[in-house]
Amino acid sequence: MRKALAPVALMLALQCSVAQAGEVVLQPTTVQDLKAVFGQVQSRDTVPARARIGGVLLSRSVDEGTAVKAGQVIATVGDEKLALQLQAVDARIKALQAQLENAKADLERSQALIARGAETQSRLDQLRTAANVLTNQIAASQADRAVIVQQTTEGQVLAPKDGRVLTVPTVPGSVIMPGETVARIAAGGYYLRLALPERHAAHIKAGDPVSVGGRGPGAEAQGGPRRQGKIVKVYPELEGGRVIADAEVDGLGDFFVGERVPVWIPVATRQALAVPADAVQTREGVDYVRVAAEGGAIDVPVVLGPAQDGRVEILSGLRAGDRVVTP
């Protein structure tokens, strides 16, 4: 038997009564029509990994497609001025420490002299104040040094979330400005973005099931399994005469972001007739179904529709009440 036409997924429940052994009486049943569209794989979040300081991109440990973890170092930015500033602060701290040692020595001598009455109180206070000022200057310089060390540490570009690297617009050796993007990361999982003609806007809603076909050309002809999912959001604004919806489908992690795959969505209901698949015979390119009649069974040519769950829809050739002979 030839394969069914392009799938318009049917929830066919063949409502038929048994007339005698090997025969079924056709009765119409309500089925759902599925609209075939293409869905585009999107990431829930696309976050940039940005440089926190300016300088030269010294190294990069990721490329397009690399999986990363939150907090992972993916690149290093270096600024030669930071090393020079750190040397200047260290030198200033050493000079202040030397001045502080002299101030403390002068203060100790002044305290010894004032005990013998050979020094004034005002002179002692001046020396004590000078020592305190130098101590505070050293503390301020150490704080400046900590800032420079922190800036050096911020030269490491970190991945903001778990995900997969989409693009890396910079290369090692290029000049980086603060806040410039070093890599774009797809994070937060994946979903399908669907666009349907606006005439279907009134028929789709959150919670509707969807069926996702295989990847690549010819996947449907090969008869591979479909992925099942559901619509989670229908956007209230039309774009270019189309209603936009998002669908969640398991197993999209191995897809490319932006990849297009066939999707079938229920959009309407109708009445249909269906027969068991083994009741159809194909001879010389024509499909036949054997129907019981007075005087014996006859082969009736039919036009077939979609097939699912072992049943095939009959588009023309049979009518309700016909007794179909099954093997």
Rank of each mutant, 00 (worst) to 15 (best):
Y191F: 15
A115P: 05
A292S: 13
V24R: 02
L12C: 12
A279D: 02
V25Y: 05
I265Q: 01
I53P: 01
T135P: 04
C16W: 08
R199I: 10
D125V: 12
I314Y: 00
V18G: 10
V24P: 00
D162A: 12
M1G: 14
Q156E: 14
E64D: 14
G229E: 02
L100D: 09
A187Q: 06
I314H: 00
A98L: 12
A195L: 11
Q271H: 07
S141N: 15
Q308H: 11
A272Y: 01
V89D: 10
L12H: 08
A201K: 10
N136S: 13
Q281T: 15
R323C: 03
V289K: 00
R60I: 11
V325G: 03
G285P: 03
P306I: 04
D162Q: 09
G39A: 06
V261E: 02
E248S: 09
S174G: 14
A146L: 13
G241P: 02
Q20L: 10
T135V: 12
G321Y: 03
K233Y: 10
G218F: 05
A279H: 02
G240Q: 06
G224M: 13
V303Y: 07
P266H: 00
Q121K: 15
V324T: 02
L86V: 11
L10H: 12
L196T: 05
T66C: 01
Q40I: 11
A70W: 00
A297D: 12
E64G: 03
A105W: 03
S141E: 15
P209G: 03
A187I: 06
I231Q: 00
R123L: 13
S141C: 14
E294T: 13
A6I: 13
E239N: 09
A293T: 15
Y235W: 13
P7Y: 03
A268D: 14
P262A: 09
A75L: 00
A49K: 02
A95Q: 11
L12D: 07
V212A: 02
G173K: 03
G65S: 04
Q111G: 12
K69G: 11
A88W: 07
L5E: 13
V133C: 05
V41P: 00
E108Q: 13
I53V: 11
G224V: 12
L304C: 06
V325H: 08
A75R: 01
Q271L: 08
G240N: 07
L86C: 08
D208S: 09
L194V: 00
V263C: 06
T120F: 08
D309A: 15
V31Q: 03
A112C: 06
L107K: 03
G296L: 10
Q142I: 12
P28C: 05
L107Y: 06
T269N: 11
P217K: 06
M11F: 12
G251W: 06
V289L: 03
G216N: 06
G321N: 07
E284T: 09
S59V: 02
R109G: 05
L304T: 10
A195Y: 08
A195M: 10
D106Y: 06
V267E: 01
V302Y: 01
V243E: 01
D144P: 07
A98I: 08
Y190D: 08
L318M: 02
P172W: 01
A274G: 14
A140F: 10
S122D: 14
A159H: 01
P7A: 09
G207L: 04
I204L: 04
M11C: 09
D299A: 11
R116K: 14
E248D: 13
G117L: 04
G65T: 01
A274F: 00
